[in-house]
Design a protein around this nucleic acid. Structure first.
Lengths: 187, 187
DNA sequence: GGAAAGAGTGGTTACTCACTCACTATCTGA
DNA sequence: TCAGATAGTGAGTGAGTAACCACTCTTTCC
């Protein structure tokens, strides 16, 4: 009779595991298309327990989105710290590079895209997305010292990346994909 | 006994009605979040008849997306025709203005955003989105004669608009929203 | 050792969804 | 005029799905 003792985590640890693993689950099909069962499976727990850790699906998704924004901001901070000079161009460039590195696995970016889509109809998610971008924009502005145009341009490029990733543009080599991907680093 | 005769449409007419009205339905909650019953209600027909007109939900959504891209391209063509000069900057500017005018009701743009999100997991939708952007990029490049950078910039700005609309950025007046919306026309 | 608290699950419920089918109402033209 | 074709629907069906609850297993601490 093997006993194979089960090691329990604290609820807080589990919540963090769920937040980390749920990124992969939500990345594919977004808020409406992803089931809580899939999230549970990705975290290695039962579906019922998801509802012990989060009050409902919306709160779970919102928490995942916030988690993503935190990671993105951390990457931007890392990029800013690594800039070769303190000129706005250099800082923005280094931030962009750090961002590109962070999202080389794509899931973080896809969750942001799906969050944006869900924000249209779900007020709580919209609030989370707004707050996330609010802090990001302010951070980029402050840390880079770039002009309004430069900061705007920085985020516009980020949005273009969402498109490129969502349609897997790098998989097709055509003039139009080369135009859209030109000059965009990716790892 | 009132007879109130019912006027039947041809199936083709109905299909077009559905395409037009389904934009409003899908704009709110996207591919996974919108039910075929909602689409039927918007078109004023029974849910069962939706399945006479389209083989399945995916084909319906794909057709709606294609319809949106056609309308966007028509707007771009109109913009190009109205440009004050044939300088790339003037043409791109006029196209951007026409685009802004077209999507002042937001639904077209939201469908494009949701299509992008659904493209991640649904191959048929991804194909439609790729084809749509392929034609749009080629058209903008050809009609404007702009450089690669200018064309890329044009689409990046479009993607930024998706973000601004999805989180209803114009509803909040804060430095970060002013940064992101700066210089972007809207009607 | 044992009781209280916390971690975790199986099973179910009430409901929704995409999709189908048998059927009726309307139209067309010979 | 009426038969064949086409427009359109009511009433399902099976497969999920979010959320819940009663329950067990594990840890902690006296």
């Amino acid at each position: 009779m093997k006993t194979e003792r089960r090691q329990l985590s604290t609820a807080e640890e589990r919540r963090e595991t769920v937040l980390r693993t749920a990124i992969g689950a939500f990345a594919a099909r977004g808020y409406f298309g992803t089931t809580t069962t899939e999230v549970a499976k990705a975290a290695g727990i039962s579906q019922a327990y998801v509802y012990r850790l989060f009050p409902n699906k919306e709160a779970l998704f919102t928490a995942v989105v916030e988690h993503c924004f935190v990671r993105v901001r951390a990457a931007l901070e890392g990029g800013a710290a690594n800039a070769e000079s303190s000129a706005p161009e250099a800082v923005l460039d280094s931030m962009g590079d750090a961002y590109a590195r962070l999202i080389s696995d794509n899931d973080l970016m896809l969750v942001q895209l799906h969050a944006q889509a869900a924000a249209v109809s779900e007020p709580a998610i919209r609030e989370a997305v707004r707050a996330g971008y609010a802090r990001s924009v302010e951070y980029v502005r402050g840390a880079s010292g770039g002009s309004e145009e430069q900061v705007q341009q920085f985020f516009a490029t980020g949005m273009l990346c969402h498109l490129l990733v969502s349609i897997d543009a790098e998989a097709i080599s055509a003039p139009w994909t080369r135009t859209l991907t030109a000059g965009i680093t990716h790892y």
